[in-house]
Simulated scan of single mutants.
Amino acid sequence: MLSRRLFLKSTALIGCSAAAHPMLSSMTFADAPGENRLVVIILRGAMDGLDVFQPYGDPELRQLRKTLSAGPDKGAQDLDGFFALHPSLAPLMPLWRAGELAFAPAVSTPYRDKRSHFDGQDMLEAGTGTDVETRSQRDGWLNRLLQTMPGVQSETAYSVGLEDMRILDGAAPAKSWSPQTRFKLSAQGQRLLAHVWHDDPLFRPAGEQAIEIINDDLARIEPAEGPARDAQALARFTADRLNRETRIASFSISGWDSHARQGPVIDRALQRLGTAILTLRADLGANWSRTTVLAMTEFGRTVRENGTGGTDHGTGGAMLVAGGNIRGGRAIGGWPGLAEGDLYAGRDLMPLRDIRAHAAWAMRDLFDIPRDVLERSVFPGLDMGENPRILG
Rank of each mutant, 00 (worst) to 15 (best):
T238D: 05
A239I: 02
D240E: 15
R241V: 04
L242Y: 00
L242G: 00
N243I: 06
R244T: 05
R247P: 01
I248P: 00
A249P: 02
S250G: 10
F251V: 06
S254P: 10
W256V: 08
S258A: 15
S258M: 13
A260N: 15
R261W: 14
Q262Y: 03
G263M: 13
P264R: 12
V265I: 15
V265K: 04
V265C: 11
V265W: 01
I266Q: 09
I266V: 15
D267C: 08
D267R: 14
D267Y: 05
A269Q: 02
A269M: 12
L270S: 06
Q271L: 15
R272D: 04
L273N: 03
G274K: 00
T275D: 03
A276S: 14
I277F: 03
L278F: 08
L278R: 07
L278Q: 12
L278S: 10
T279K: 01
L280H: 04
R281C: 09
A282F: 10
D283C: 12
D283R: 13
L284M: 09
G285S: 09
N287R: 10
W288M: 07
W288I: 06
W288N: 02
S289K: 13
R290M: 08
T291W: 02
T291I: 06
T292M: 08
T292I: 04
V293I: 15
L294R: 00
M296V: 15
M296E: 03
T297R: 04
T297M: 08
T297Y: 07
E298Q: 12
F299M: 07
F299I: 09
R301L: 10
T302I: 05
V303I: 11
E305M: 09
E305N: 09
N306P: 11
G307H: 12
T308M: 10
T308P: 01
G309H: 04
H313E: 05
H313F: 05
H313Q: 10
G316L: 04
L320R: 00
L320V: 11
A322Y: 01
I326H: 01
R327W: 12
R327E: 14
G329I: 05
R330V: 13
A331M: 09
A331W: 02
G333D: 07
G334C: 12
G334P: 11
P336M: 13
P336Q: 10
P336R: 09
P336H: 14
L338T: 03
A339F: 09
A339N: 14
E340N: 14
D342T: 11
L343M: 14
L343N: 07
Y344T: 06
D348T: 03
L349N: 01
L349I: 07
M350E: 12
